[in-house]
Amino acid sequence: MEIIYERFKSADADELVGFLSGDTWPFHGSDVVDGAEVRQWIEEGRYDDQDNRTFWIVVAGARTGLVRLMDLCDDTPMFDLRIRTEHRGRGLGGQALTWLTRYVFTEFPKVHRIEGTTRQDNVAMRRAFRRCGYAKEAHYRDAWPAADGEVRDAVGYAILRRDWRSGRTTVPDWNDELTPRPH
């Protein structure tokens, strides 16, 4: 399956509105996105400006997903990855994560690391992070309100440039705290 990544252009605004408001996004801030809100975000430059770049994920001529890179002026950018419902579960997320990692480290030589956060129950994305060399660096308890009214844990992953270059994943020292003294 050949995947092409096409940079978002202002002429794509109507399609982006339809893409984001025409599907559900269960592992994002809101399951449903309002089209008028998307238009406002486009006008604000959230999808294409000095600090943000967005790319369509195109498979067999169809725009099946979206990669949004954020904070590109920092040395630690983040991203948003969305795949249309009917294309989920086919490995597109992992392939897009591999692509965006290579793209950011190649195009932005000052970037030291790339971060991503997902809900704890987003098993597919967590698996993609690990397969693509990202290390779990954070676990935020009760940090992600869900549409069902529950609050889920959020999990943060990152990849370092040196790990990407070497193909090895270094993990944080999770046992670095001093033993508490008894009272």
Rank of each mutant, 00 (worst) to 15 (best):
T24S: 12
G35T: 03
P145E: 11
W174N: 13
A154V: 10
A124F: 04
R88C: 02
F79A: 04
F105S: 04
A128K: 02
T85I: 12
H112S: 15
L97N: 04
L66A: 07
V155Y: 00
L100W: 00
D142P: 06
H87N: 13
I42N: 08
E43S: 14
A147E: 15
R181F: 04
R130T: 15
T169S: 10
M125W: 09
G61C: 14
G91V: 00
D75P: 11
L100N: 02
M78I: 09
T85Q: 07
R63K: 14
I57E: 00
W164G: 00
G65E: 11
Y157P: 00
V58W: 14
P172I: 15
G18Y: 06
N175Q: 14
V111N: 07
A36L: 08
I42D: 11
G156A: 11
G133N: 06
P145G: 09
I57N: 00
P180W: 15
D176L: 12
T117C: 13
A128V: 07
E43P: 05
V111G: 07
I83D: 01
G45H: 02
R84C: 03
W41K: 04
G35C: 14
R130P: 15
V171F: 15
R161E: 05
D153H: 06
V17F: 01
I4W: 13
D71E: 13
C132D: 08
I3C: 07
R165T: 08
V33D: 09
F129K: 01
